[in-house]
């Protein structure tokens, strides 16, 4: 695991508390002009993928305590029912679930990056990003049926992904987020609403993920919209 950006920025004297006051917007840097925004509050419930096809609009559940990044451990973690409807729900911002007696909240998040930074997301909600299971859900709306496409993800660390309730990707172990690390088999997106669901298990340090759809030629698919409702 690489040294996290958080530790790096902290060493530069990042005013972390100030960022927490901004809700889930995290600002870091040593000067007013030297900051990056990792997690944004969505300004709209609908968005197109970015210029590289990355899906930036997600529902994220505050992290659940979890351990183990190996294939068997992750599969056991994600297949455990932590809350009702964990494989079917498309939540709304502010929805709450109770896991092991702890109330956790779903948050709608946006980003202007290729990835969703779960480390900052957890910190923003005063949760530990380490030893954590993150659930992420989004809905994409396709103008027509799209056959032969693939979901492509990267995650730090392990993750399992579903498209329309079918498990399509599992990547395991202590790994860096790499664009298009895990790729699904060819699949067909329905015309209209398609649900993408991911479960990311982080051991320690940085945690994030990225996701996009690749067309038959392996190029990013962009002719769809992402919806939070």
């Amino acid at each position: 695991m690489m040294i996290s950006q958080w530790n790096f920025h902290r060493s530069l004297g990042v005013v972390w508390a100030a960022s927490l006051c901004l809700g889930i917007t995290v600002v870091s840097g040593s000067s007013a002009n030297d900051h990056e925004t990792f997690i944004l509050t969505p300004q709209s419930a609908q968005k197109a993928p970015n210029s590289d096809g990355f899906i930036q609009l997600w529902h994220l559940l505050e992290p659940i305590s979890a351990s183990g990044e190996t294939q068997n451990a992750v599969q056991a973690t994600v297949k455990t029912e932590h809350f009702p409807g964990q494989f079917t729900v498309v939540p709304k911002d502010g929805d709450k679930v109770t896991v092991n007696g702890t109330e956790l909240t779903w948050h709608d998040v946006d980003t202007n990056k290729y990835n969703i930074n779960l480390y900052y997301f957890a910190q923003a909600h005063r949760k530990s990003p380490s030893g954590a299971l993150f659930w992420a859900v989004t809905v994409i709306n396709c103008p027509e049926e799209m056959a032969g496409v693939r979901l492509a993800v990267g995650s730090n660390s392990a993750s399992v992904w579903w498209v329309n309730d079918k498990e399509v990707i599992g990547i395991y172990g202590n790994r860096q987020t790499v664009v298009d690390d895990g790729i699904s088999k060819r699949l067909t997106l329905k015309k209209g609403r398609n649900v993408i669901r991911g479960a990311i298990v982080n051991g320690s340090g940085a945690a994030d993920f990225c996701a996009r759809i690749l067309d038959r030629e392996g190029k990013p698919l962009k002719n769809f919209t992402i919806h939070l409702n």
Partner: peptide
């Protein structure tokens, strides 16, 4: 090999 971790 497609992506980093998949073959097809």
């Amino acid at each position: 090999a497609i992506g980093h971790s998949f073959a097809t």
